[in-house]
Nucleic acid binder design. Structure first.
Lengths: 208, 208
DNA sequence: CGTGAAACGGAGCACTTGCTCCGCCTGCTC
DNA sequence: GAGCAGGCGGAGCAAGTGCTCCGTTTCACG
């Protein structure tokens, strides 16, 4: 707000500034993954081996730092998931969900950051990033699986996202076989062959 | 620890003590339901209209207070759910899950308290209470639904609990029609008719 | 009633956490 | 190499939190 010079942009003019910015992003991403989004700024600075002043010179606020770090993480997730596609719609969908949950297991705090402040969604940029990065991928997976007839036709991409969030909340806190069973059951519920008539979605393609 | 006289027992000798204990439990339960388990002790005291000293005279620590409050809540949940049984196994199971999620919507913080510290589960007495109160009910619902043949036979009570926890994490943060759809899909996956072969449970009847 | 043990209240302590301030130092430019 | 804009570090501030201390008040019993 009252800073004489604004925050350092991503492309810094000085080499040490660029390096420190990278270190801060890495440290933040690592800590979020390990412990969720309520990390101590001091600890981020310590892990990045920079001082507090440096942290706040690069990012105006803790949230801005976490936000930038999360954007990175979600982008790389979407890239990895896209690269793993095989072209067999149902397998791709099932595998995408399984991989996403495995990833979530390794980074328990990630979804936490995503979900944080979900109801009063104002200012939750983590969600926006996730939607931008992963949303289209899910939409495509759903489209393909609909086309192949294996995915129940009344299911929307929103439903799949939501299911993934739900499963993601339990995956890190129970042993893998336990959540794999729940995923398996859920996938069985997603099949066309399992479909029973379902209540309509609330909104056409909405934001929830 | 160093208190001269230990905490006041549930059955207090003085009327004001008993009343204040009740007020504290009510206030704590209300606040947990609204905002999860990271409530300010001062706010609990304020809502209960007692002082800090009174709070800490009755409960040795914040956690002990929350714990006692949660036991109440879980007990009343189990009682209400038991009272709602109709004797039709599948309907009872589906209704139990729906009601549980509705309840969760009204008290977003409840599951939060339940899940808190789930991985390092040391000292999470909320979970123990929930298991003790609702665990047997779920087990009975599953048993009956197995007997009627409608619930897929490879599904355990643990699976159902876990599914409930997962859905409970999203129910409060999306509009009701959205989570009802996910519940619907999940229920379809629970039907015998939808079953495809599933990975075995990790442990016989374990604790997870 | 009177009395004393017990409960009450809330200011205050110790600690954490997000963020700021400002003197020092570094790396870029000429 | 010299100068200096600009980055760096970390002590410190303000706000918030769990818990304690202790003088004051209240209930129950005789």
């Amino acid at each position: 707000m009252t800073s004489p010079s604004a925050a350092i942009p991503a492309a810094a003019t000085r080499s040490d500034a660029a390096r420190n910015r990278g270190r801060l992003l890495d440290a933040a991403a690592g800590l979020i993954a390990e412990r969720g989004s309520d990390v101590d700024v001091r600890e981020i600075a310590r892990r990045a081996e920079v001082g507090m002043g440096t942290l706040y010179r690069h990012f105006p606020t803790k949230e801005a730092l976490l936000d930038a770090a999360l954007e990175h993480v979600f982008t790389s997730w979407a890239d990895a998931a896209t690269a793993a596609l095989t072209g067999r719609p149902w397998d791709d969908l099932a595998r995408f969900l399984g991989d996403a949950l495995t990833r979530q297991t390794a980074s328990p705090g990630l979804l936490d950051a995503y979900c944080q402040a979900l109801p009063g969604q104002a200012g939750n940029t983590a969600r926006q990033h996730c939607r931008q990065q992963v949303g289209p991928l899910i939409a495509e997976l759903v489209r393909a699986a609909h086309a192949s007839g294996e995915l129940r036709p009344d299911l929307t991409a929103e439903d799949v996202s939501l299911l993934l969030v739900a499963l993601g909340r339990i995956a890190p806190v129970v042993p893998e076989p336990a959540w794999r069973r729940i995923l398996h059951v859920s996938l069985d519920g997603l099949r066309s062959s399992a479909a029973t008539s379902m209540p309509a979605p609330a909104r056409p393609p909405g934001d929830a």
